[in-house]
Design a protein around this nucleic acid. Structure first.
Lengths: 352, 352
DNA sequence: CTGAAAGCGCTAACAC
DNA sequence: GTGTTAGCGCTTTCAG
């Protein structure tokens, strides 16, 4: 009868029972080996079971273990962005990679989803797979983001909000970089280099981080420089250049364009070139985040370096410890932003 | 006793049983409503159950359904790349977004994982969650890639290989774009514009697509132009520029640099500028894939447009139909590559 | 149209 | 150090 049980049925993957029968031990012993409860299994048995597992090509079935343990062994990452190519943004991909790597080390999977708006999110929640916790990156105006977070809050699993500082949500922790300080720092450099009129160029489809960067820019400029603001369609690079050129036309060329991110800063560099302006001599330009693509444009844009990958790691670690423990340790985690070298700010007067 | 069962126990999410008790029907009826077997439930009952689901905040538990149905409701996407930031490559993110969107529509999740090499993959397979099917994008020399695919083949679930043309694997379908034809087309343009010496600049960490592009370049050049080849460290943009400049120094400036992708083509543009060469008058440059970032560099690089997003969709559709049906319909699926406008190829002689 | 019973693969708790 | 029992939440089957 041993032979009877030791042969997995054709077409069905081997189960714990098959391994146990093959190695001639109980299922529990196999389970103990798999879960590295080494104290409870003799070395000899362990080796034999490992061999059986390898021989049969056994892999534990997540759904069965999950049902028993009341865990899905998965964390979701949901992006709310108008573009269905929701991973085109390097910020998103850095966060996702950081999360995925940390989660994989703990035996968890990362499930990524993109939705274009709140209705898309509702549809997703109807059909989407369960997870043990959720990270979310939402763009757009604040009321829409709040609706997104409240929908997710109702799911009753731990929530990590990435790059939005939103208080008052149950079982939620916000993971943000210090955009305001970063924007203040780089704007102060520009002002120290002599700029008195600044053009803050933001994407017209807002990310919450942009709001904080604008606050930092205005804080640095207070009583020292004048700040104008325009919105660009980030999805249309040539259009962004045109928007910036139009702003030059209408309100004159400022001393500096402070881009809400590198993409827009680079658009400003292109706009300057098309007008025959030399960067940084005639016009200074700054960006934000310093992801590798900024090198493609010349001259290299002065920027602030984002800890996006580390933010993803932090969110993963936070969610995992929340799942194992009782609650988030804090309600907010802030990572610093540091200067990234570039050549689109003139040397400071002090430095000269 | 109804009240007894209708109240979900505190701290435990509501189950089908809770919903059934609350709506005063059997569990099966609730299940039928959820799975839209509308024929078997009266409209009245359906509405009542839907209300109960909403009231209780019930969400079906994936692991339980999965155990019963022998499905994980998840597809894996595994990237084999030396960089732990495995999503930095726009090709990968387009594929991932295409897959994720298609899978979500079918109620499946996409689990993304990155590993740096074969050992990382082995470690991942030990701990990673089960899936119903797997897509893989592997880089590096061919023997290593073959080892990757064979490891995954042993998992005994359907496998979608993205951008590698590898025959002879069980239950596997390759999804590739027609890189060879695309490379031949763009190289022919360059030759028609008068180029006789070509420098094919490839990343030194190979992607399989690059092999096909090189074949296309050489096919176009046969008996008409001479092809040299260099490898650049793609992770180091400044280093790539230096490598290209060194090649100019050592072997003379070619008529055209044919980049294996846009990143490398853009590095060639920077190299040309640093040497005072005008593109395309003194040196033509081409790239490949035409993802949005190519606009950041000026002049706009002439390229071929990749259907990467569609490739991801195709892989998702193929895997899903394979899971539901009996086998992959084909063993390979090839998507076309079309020209993307740019200004780094001189006008053709014929055109002038 | 609805209900009852059985079991998917796994592990905690408790024997031995 | 190893075995037994019970049950996680869901759906298929079959009986009303």
């Amino acid at each position: 009868m041993k032979a009877d049980r030791s042969r997995p049925q054709r077409g069905r993957p081997p189960t714990l029972r098959d391994v146990a029968a093959y190695a001639d031990v109980s299922m529990m012993t196999v389970s103990n080996v798999i879960n590295e409860r080494t104290a409870r299994v003799s070395e000899q048995t362990r080796v034999r079971i490992l061999a059986a597992i390898d021989k049969l090509g056994y892999r534990p079935q997540r759904s069965a273990r999950g049902l028993r343990m009341q865990r899905e062994y998965a964390i979701g990452l949901t992006i709310v962005r108008p573009d269905r190519r929701f991973l085109d943004d390097p910020y998103v991909t850095e966060v996702a990679a950081g999360m995925s790597n940390r989660l994989a080390a703990a035996g968890y999977g990362l499930m990524v989803n993109g939705v274009t708006d709140v209705d898309g999110l509702k549809a997703l929640l109807t059909h989407a797979s369960n997870v043990d916790g959720l990270a979310v990156m939402a763009s757009g105006p604040r009321p829409g983001r709040e609706e997104v977070y409240r929908l997710l809050e109702r799911l009753h699993h731990p929530l990590a909000i990435i790059q939005d500082d939103m208080a008052g949500l149950a079982d939620t922790c916000c993971f943000i970089q210090d955009d305001e300080t970063g924007a203040r720092m780089i704007t102060e450099q520009v002002i120290a280099a002599g700029a008195r009129t600044l053009l803050f160029a933001a994407p017209d489809h807002l990310w919450p981080a942009v709001e904080r960067r604008e606050a930092g820019v205005r804080a640095a400029a207070r009583r020292r420089a004048k700040v104008m603001r325009i919105g660009c369609n980030e999805a249309d690079f040539q259009g962004s250049i045109a928007t910036i050129l139009a702003a030059f036309e209408r309100r004159g060329v400022p001393d500096a364009v402070v881009g809400a991110n590198d993409q827009i800063g680079i658009a400003a560099i292109h706009a300057a070139m098309q007008r025959g302006l030399v960067v940084p001599d005639d016009l200074m330009v700054t960006g934000f985040n310093a992801f590798p693509f900024r090198q493609f444009s010349g001259p290299l844009i002065s920027s602030m370096r984002s800890p996006a990958y580390a933010l993803g790691e932090a969110a993963a670690v936070g969610l995992l410890s929340r799942i194992d423990g009782e609650g988030f340790e804090t309600t907010k985690q802030v990572l610093p932003v540091v200067p990234a070298e570039g050549v689109t700010i003139r040397m400071c007067r002090e430095t000269l």
